[in-house]
Design a protein around this nucleic acid. Sequence first.
DNA 1: CTGCATTACATATCCAGACATCTACTGCCA
DNA 2: TGGCAGTAGATGTCTGGATATGTAATGCAG
Lengths: 241, 241
Amino acid sequence: MSLYAIERDTGIALYAQIAEVLEREYVRQGSPGDRLPAEGELAARFGVNRHTLRRAVDELILEGLLERQHGVGIFITDRLLDYRVGIGTRFTQTLAEIGIATDTKVIRKMVAPASAGVAKHLAIEADQDVLWIETLRIADGMPFCVISHFLPVKPYRELLEDYQDGSLHALLNQHCGALRRTESLVTAVMPQGDDAKLLGITQHRPVLRVKSLNVIECDASPVEYAITRFRADRIQLCITP
Amino acid sequence: MSLYAIERDTGIALYAQIAEVLEREYVRQGSPGDRLPAEGELAARFGVNRHTLRRAVDELILEGLLERQHGVGIFITDRLLDYRVGIGTRFTQTLAEIGIATDTKVIRKMVAPASAGVAKHLAIEADQDVLWIETLRIADGMPFCVISHFLPVKPYRELLEDYQDGSLHALLNQHCGALRRTESLVTAVMPQGDDAKLLGITQHRPVLRVKSLNVIECDASPVEYAITRFRADRIQLCITP
DNA sequence: CTGCATTACATATCCAGACATCTACTGCCA
DNA sequence: TGGCAGTAGATGTCTGGATATGTAATGCAG
């Protein structure tokens, strides 16, 4: 029997009380990957309807403590992995330095008219075509971040015609010489579109979004505008002055 | 009548279809602050149960597009304000530079044993007492970020006995000389504890968390370890190399 | 005209049940 | 032995109804 009882008519919602008990009893006691009893079983134990129990589980999913797998069960999520990635340097290079094997998967590669934001940064007219490459970066076999790369069509279309994997910036470096990152804008958002699926997280976990612009070192002409979405549960950007 | 019809048995959940229609029809057309029709009204219009409609609204609340007020209605949320704040500099100073008036409110001030993380950064023993100050920063009259400041008790207790508002770092500067920020760790999390209430956001919007350590310039001894939680909808950290 | 009780209406919670869909396992069949 | 159909059991969606609680406007009493 549970040490923590559920009380009705206390002014505190049943689902909130149950969420707390579930957290104390399963999340804190258990380990990542552990499965909880089935919804019906838990509902019976607490003496509430299955909907009420689901509402309680929803709370913990929102907090990132649990996740559901359709047809399988409810599981305790993995903990923060605390990778540190420098913001000033390149993705592949940075992770290589701390001994993490990385992989790149090209999700989409297309030519499309630039949005206002992209056009501004690439110093072209809005609606003018840009090269749009969507890549998924994988570290240690686990999805790490999704990057939308935007490049001017003009000089880079042929260059990237057969780009498939590896470091995009190494390729650009060979062609344009040294690149420089001008500034990075960092914020937190909820995952949009396919990002949650690609990153292997639920729709309810935040992602760290970094917008950055790379220019050619010598003449400062823009080469690539990138929007990166990191799994926030696996990463801490490390910024050193 | 709506241009966008809801279809059953398409394999797409009704609530998902309704959420899309609500977004197109109200969120994109309307303005922040606008109220949606009542739940019952909308449910009748779409020909679904009120629970199903609520589920649809839940989706948009999670995406940060709508918010509910008990007994009042459902409203379109405010848009991103896109403040840019440099990570390398001081809060008050940075915002002053871009012409934003700031205010500081001390939420809590107490002495408590250090957690493992805090102790490590301040180079003291775990469980040893530290000064713990919780402040809320307000920019242009709107909550902006919550900061947990941790300082060694030893030299700073008396200094900060009567600290109430204004720049904490200006005060520390007078006492210790120049400070230097060693590194900043940035990630995204969902708000914990009272943070959502203090920041004036729902529990379902992400916050940007920055952990930083300030040391004395000349001898590199740690002065302040701070954990800052920014409203992610109002801020973009701007990082320049 | 002020202030408070009433009331209408909004969202919040909970229950009970039906059916859909997904997953993993079982066991038969080729 | 490999593959596939069936099935048990898990989560997902939707309905209908009852009741609780919060908000703001109404209207009456003072």
